[in-house]
Design a protein around this nucleic acid. Structure first.
Lengths: 196, 196
DNA sequence: GGGGAACCGATACGATCGCATCGGAATAAC
DNA sequence: GTTATTCCGATGCGATCGTATCGGTTCCCC
């Protein structure tokens, strides 16, 4: 047996580099050479970890998807004492990727979304994350007393609204504060209707 | 005076070719050579119309933005007899670009949206369209009896929701029918609240 | 401690990109 | 018919892309 290397660790490190580059220059600005420099490895090492660039991008998408999804779940476990309604607000706020510290992820997410429109493999990866988030949201909304059908519908609406606001914020048509306020107002209307 | 050419007409024809290519392969799949072939002109002609590729893309964005915006306005003028609420539904349905015949435009729009996240010039073009659509929606919502503040908020929410649903449909996480139903349900809730 | 497999880094290659250049075709004024 | 000007289409150029290749290094196993 020869030299051994933690492949998974390296793949994650490369995925981080990919994401950083997407944030800075968009998806088409990602080149193997730049990725190698950013990840502080050689091009050859990148090629060993991922047979093709396509595979690398798919892995990076899964990586960022996991991060967002796990953080959303963390919001639930991290605040078990709060009301279900308030938890929904926190989770949606997390998914919307507003706020400066999430701006990079927002750009990455949007870049993958657009690429997925013409790339079935990326679309599948994205659907995976969406399905998880939607299920989580639906369960939480249902806990507030909404019937299952209505909860599913509201979860879908919330997910789309959050995504749309993210995009509008990224192009500067909406500030993060405005987006957050719209999200909050939508939820307030929802709880008002559910309470009656 | 030498040979004369209708530059505007040619620019539009080229913009159409750009859009067709974005629909098929995404924004990064657009090359000057392919555009020239698709528009049935030479590369030199494309270069004469647009000094740089960047300028060409900006024009194409304006072109598609105009088309969507004009169609949305057309929905208002085309149905003056209907209730304001129903008009809002039609306009939002138009903006969401659901339906097979709008799928290409949806992909183009999303591609420009993602590119705009790292390209200020494209972002400005996109904001231009968004502002127009948002203003139109706000006026229509206000006509249903909602106060100005609430109408503006609802217009912003609707625009974001429509955009988000478009993206989810494009990656196959939502069908066009589901998206339409969610949009319809959201509006139904809005009118119910406004009516009380 | 010698051998062989796994890994690395550098380089080469073919393709393709945006853009610049340039000779000639086309046309209106004289 | 000549001339001047505008446009076209082809070609060239330099850069950069993803990927393949290959000698050298490293390290586990026996």
């Amino acid at each position: 047996m020869p030299k051994q290397v933690d492949h998974e660790e390296r793949r994650r490190r490369i995925a981080e580099a990919v994401c950083a580059l997407i944030d800075a220059q968009g998806l088409e600005g990602v080149t193997l050479r730049d990725v190698a420099v950013r990840a502080e490895v050689s091009v050859g090492a990148v090629q060993r970890c991922f047979r093709t660039k396509e595979g690398m991008l798919q892995f990076a998408l899964g990586h960022i998807g996991e991060r967002v999804t796990e953080r959303a779940h963390g919001r639930v476990l991290g605040s078990p004492a709060q009301s279900a309604a308030s938890t929904v607000g926190h989770v949606v706020g997390e998914v919307a990727l507003l706020g400066d510290e999430r701006r990079a992820e927002a750009r990455i997410w949007l870049a993958f979304l657009a690429a997925a429109a013409v790339n079935p493999a990326l679309a599948a990866g994205l659907r995976n994350s969406y399905t998880g988030l939607e299920g989580l949201l639906a369960r939480l909304v249902e806990e507030t007393g909404v019937d299952a059908e209505g909860a599913r519908r509201e979860a879908r609406t919330l997910l789309a609204l959050a995504d749309g606001l993210t995009g509008h914020m990224l192009v500067g048509h909406r500030t993060a504060a405005e987006a957050e306020e719209l999200l909050h107002a939508h939820l307030a209307g929802l709880w008002a209707r559910a309470g009656e």
